[in-house]
Write a protein that binds this DNA or RNA. Structure first.
Lengths: 237, 237
DNA sequence: TAGATTGCTGAACACTGTTCAGTGCAAACC
DNA sequence: GGTTTGCACTGAACAGTGTTCAGCAATCTA
């Protein structure tokens, strides 16, 4: 019964070839400039054949987003070697790694954290196991800072993580969209934001957010988002 | 000699009609879903006629970006009534206004601060008079906080502005791209980030950035950006 | 070997931004 | 008033996009 297996292997090979081609084109030419036709041409298949492997272009990019989280996860793993550092320096190192990821892999970063061109992202986002893993690891580090007395006991580790991560995403967006002025350096800005928020957390201001450590447990909760209806940005009419 | 004037008025009317149609479609259907053909259809002209008013689709959106800054400027003007507040509360109010702008005008916000689909944005950005005006006003407010002793004397007002603004852009991006978990509320997060950074600035950590108050004066400066070459994202080949 | 299955293709559909030859109308000139 | 000029505007086209589908050819099953 090796035939089915070989067929499956063949399909898997093409599946991978599509992803590899899409990734290479995506990184070198930029997300939106990659067309199904270009991917098909690179793997020497017809454009239509792609659609027997992925239901839509979106799904190719979902698969690539998962690769992105795997990559971020891998680069984060290098930082585990820094376990000897004091908790606060670990935080610094990890978030520096997160920011550097946005520098080294701008297209992955854009896809994972910024892009709105894939409408289903909000539904699918929490399904990325690696995304949760990366996040939980960072939240753990925050908790260790609280335990070590670096941050006040009332500090919510998940919120502390969210504050720094969100701000760094802001820096990355400003850098990637080239909105910073000529006198501004994104790398320094990233570091300054981390330092300022760390100092702010240590000062322990009164904060409004009440976030559970694992929001996945709250999947049933409703009404947490503001009621504003955003345009859903369908790929085309 | 009223003929030339009337002709000019007619052209100006069509010019405005294009912008109005583009803006309405843009706000209701989302930036990328607005096509030249849709704009043309709405103003009951042929698609080609648009090109005698704007060199490209990009330029329509540049004009809209300027409108966005005008809008932000206008909403900020309402806050001038809050001049009686203490400096720190003014900062809070103004940045809350900035964040709310991202909520109330997500498409304008996206265009002005996030979108990468208009490649020339980095060149044209500082040409927006309103952008500079809004920024300078906020930097002034920061300076007043320093003068009032709310922030340490060493605080760089432009950097303080940049820290908060960038972080809020991060929140807005997370919200607009629907990346926040079910237990997270963007409005609270925005407020918490402002409070945390204010607390951090008051603690006065050692920061790396050395930013001049008006980076426009440094337009000749080179090498301030990291050398990484980003894909330029041409609209099409 | 006959039939079913399946992977892939060519062609098409409905879009997109943009260009250009040509048309028709209004202004300018005689 | 008649003619010519200028120009706003159009229809059609080009080259590109994501996606669909009938059909072909090769392979597997019986």
């Amino acid at each position: 019964m090796g035939i089915k297996e070989r067929q499956e292997r063949d399909r898997e090979a093409v599946h991978r070839a599509i992803l590899d081609a899409a990734r290479e084109l995506f990184v070198s030419e930029g997300y939106r400039n990659v067309s199904i036709r270009k991917v098909a041409e690179r793997i020497e298949y017809s454009p239509a054949s792609i659609y027997s492997y992925f239901p839509s272009k979106d799904d190719i990019f979902f698969a690539l987003a998962e690769e992105g989280f795997r990559l971020l996860h891998g680069e984060r793993a290098d930082l585990d070697a820094l376990a000897v550092l004091p908790p606060l320096d670990r935080i610094r190192a990890i978030f520096t790694g997160f920011y550097r990821f946005s520098v080294n892999h701008p297209e992955y970063f854009s896809l994972m954290f910024v892009d709105r061109s894939v409408p289903r992202i909000s539904q699918e986002y929490e399904r990325f196991a690696f995304a949760r893993e990366v996040k939980n690891h960072l939240v753990d580090q925050m908790q260790q800072c609280v335990d070590a007395g670096v941050f006040p006991p009332a500090t919510q580790p998940h919120l502390a993580f969210r504050l720094v991560a969100t701000s760094l995403i802001g820096v990355a967006v400003m850098r990637l969209s080239d909105r910073l002025g000529p006198g501004e350096n994104a790398d320094d800005l990233a570091q300054d934001i981390v330092e300022t928020i760390i100092a702010g957390l240590q000062a322990g201001p009164v904060l409004r957010s009440h976030v559970h450590s694992d929001p996945c447990l709250l999947e049933e909760s409703i009404g947490t988002h503001s009621g504003l209806s955003l345009t859903s940005e369908e790929p085309h009419s």
